Amino acid sequence: MRGILAGWDSLDPALRWLMRINLIALTTATLLLASAYLLGFRHTSVEIDLGVMAVSIVLMLVTPPLCRRYGAPAAIVGLTLSALIFAVGGTWATPNLSPLTALLTMVPLLVGFAYLGRRWIQVLSVVAVAGSAGVAALAEWRRTEAVSEEWWINAVVIAASLPAGVAVVVLLVRSAYARLQGQSDELVESRRRVVEVADAARRSLERDLHDGAQQRLLASSVTIERARKELRAGRHDSAAALLDQLAADNREIVTELRELARGIYPPLLTERGLVAALQSTARRSAVPVTLDVADVERTDPQVEAAAYFCILEALTNAAKHSGAAEVHVTLRGRPHLSFTVCDDGRGFDRGAVDAGGLLGMEARVAAAGGRLTLDTGPGRGTVVRGEFAP
C-alpha cells in the first residue's frame, strides 16, 4: 500500500495527511458496512452504499500517480469526485444521511483554500453550494420513495458510515486550525528574521563596498596624483605607466562592481529567468558545478529570486567553507518548483556554527511560500533542499 500511495509524498505534509485520513476513514466505513452485510443485513440500500464507497476508494487511489505530475490540484480533484460520489450515492440509498453527505460536499473547498488559486476556489465553491443543495433536495425526494422503510436498515447504514465521515470533518477542522495557528507563529518569526536578514545584508553590502571598491577607488586617486606629479616633472614615460596601471585598476573596479550588483539582483534573472541565471552562476563558480534541470518554466519572480539566492548562498558556502571538490544542483519544475544543492565537502555541526546565513535562506524561501531543509554533519557533506508550494 505504501508503494501505491507514494505519489502523495510530493504533496504538502498537511494535505498528504488529510488524504490518508480520508482514505482510512472510507476504508473503515466500507469494512464495517461489508461486515454488517455478511452478518445478514442484506438489503438494497446497503449494497448501494457499499458500491458507492468502493468507487470513492478507487477514485482516491487513482490520485497518487497524478500527484507526481500535477501536485495538489490532482489530489483535490480526486477528493472532490470521491466526496460527490459518496454524497449522491449515500443520499440515494439512505436519505437520513443527508446532513453528513451535504457536509462532505464542502470538504474539498475547505481543503483547497490553502493549496489552490482563485479559479479553483471559485469552481469548488460552486460545487459546495450546488452539491449540498442538490443532496438536500435528493434526500427530501427519496424520503417518500425510500429503498426501505425498515428503521433498522437505515440505522445500520448510518452507524457504519456516520462515525468515519464525522471523523474526517473533525480532523479537517482541527488540521485547518492547527495550520492557521502555525502560520501565525511562522509569520511572527519570519518578521523577526526578515529584520535580522535585512540588517545583516546591509552590513555585508557596506563591508563589501568598504573593503573592495572603496579601497580600490582610494588607490586610484593616489595613482592619479602620482601621474600628475610625473607629468609636471616631465617624466612622460613614468606617467604613461601609471595611467596604464590606472586603466587596469579601473577595469577591475568595474568588474568588481558588476559582481556586487549581480549579487544584489542579477539582470539575467529578470530578463531570462532562473535557469539562465543559474547557468551563468555555475560557470563562474570556484567549485565545479553540475546543473541538472527538468520541466522548469518561468514562474513568480519572488519564487525565482528566492530559489536563485538560496542556491547562490549554498554554492558560496561550499566554495568558502566545505572544501568540496564538486557541487551537484538539481532543479525541478513539476509538480512544483524545487531544488537541491549537494556538495561532497566535509560538512559541519549545525550547533557549532553561526546560523545567520541559514536563517536568511529560510526566511527568503518562507516569504515566497516555500520550505527549506538542511541535511549535514561532520564528514558527510551538505545537502540543501528547497520546495515551493504551487
Rank of each mutant, 00 (worst) to 15 (best):
S10R: 10
L11R: 03
P13Y: 05
L23I: 06
T28I: 13
L31K: 06
L32H: 06
L33G: 06
A34F: 07
A36R: 08
L38H: 09
L39V: 10
G40C: 08
I48V: 15
D49M: 15
G51R: 03
V58L: 14
L59D: 05
M60R: 11
G71M: 01
V77R: 03
T80V: 00
S82C: 08
I85Y: 00
T94H: 04
L97Q: 00
P99Q: 03
L100R: 04
V107E: 07
A114I: 07
L116H: 02
R118P: 05
W120M: 00
W120N: 02
I121T: 04
V126N: 02
V126E: 03
A128Q: 04
S132K: 04
A133N: 07
A139P: 03
R142P: 02
T144Q: 14
A146S: 15
N154A: 15
S161F: 07
G165A: 08
V168H: 03
V170Q: 06
S175V: 08
A176Q: 10
A176D: 04
Y177L: 13
G182M: 10
D185S: 12
V188I: 11
V188N: 09
A200V: 05
A201S: 13
R202D: 13
S204L: 12
A227K: 00
A227I: 05
E230F: 12
E230W: 11
L231H: 01
A233S: 11
A233V: 01
A241F: 10
L242Q: 02
L243Q: 04
R251A: 13
V254H: 12
R258A: 10
L260M: 12
P267Y: 04
E271K: 12
G273H: 06
G273D: 00
R284C: 07
R284V: 07
T290R: 15
V293Y: 01
E297H: 13
Q302R: 15
V303C: 04
E304L: 00
T316D: 15
K320F: 07
G323K: 12
L331C: 02
R332S: 11
R332Y: 06
P335G: 01
F339D: 01
T340L: 14
D344V: 07
D349H: 11
R350T: 10
G351A: 13
G356M: 14
L358F: 14
L358M: 14
A368F: 01
L372I: 04
D375E: 15
R380W: 09
R380V: 13
G381I: 07
G381R: 07
V383A: 12
V383C: 11
A389T: 08
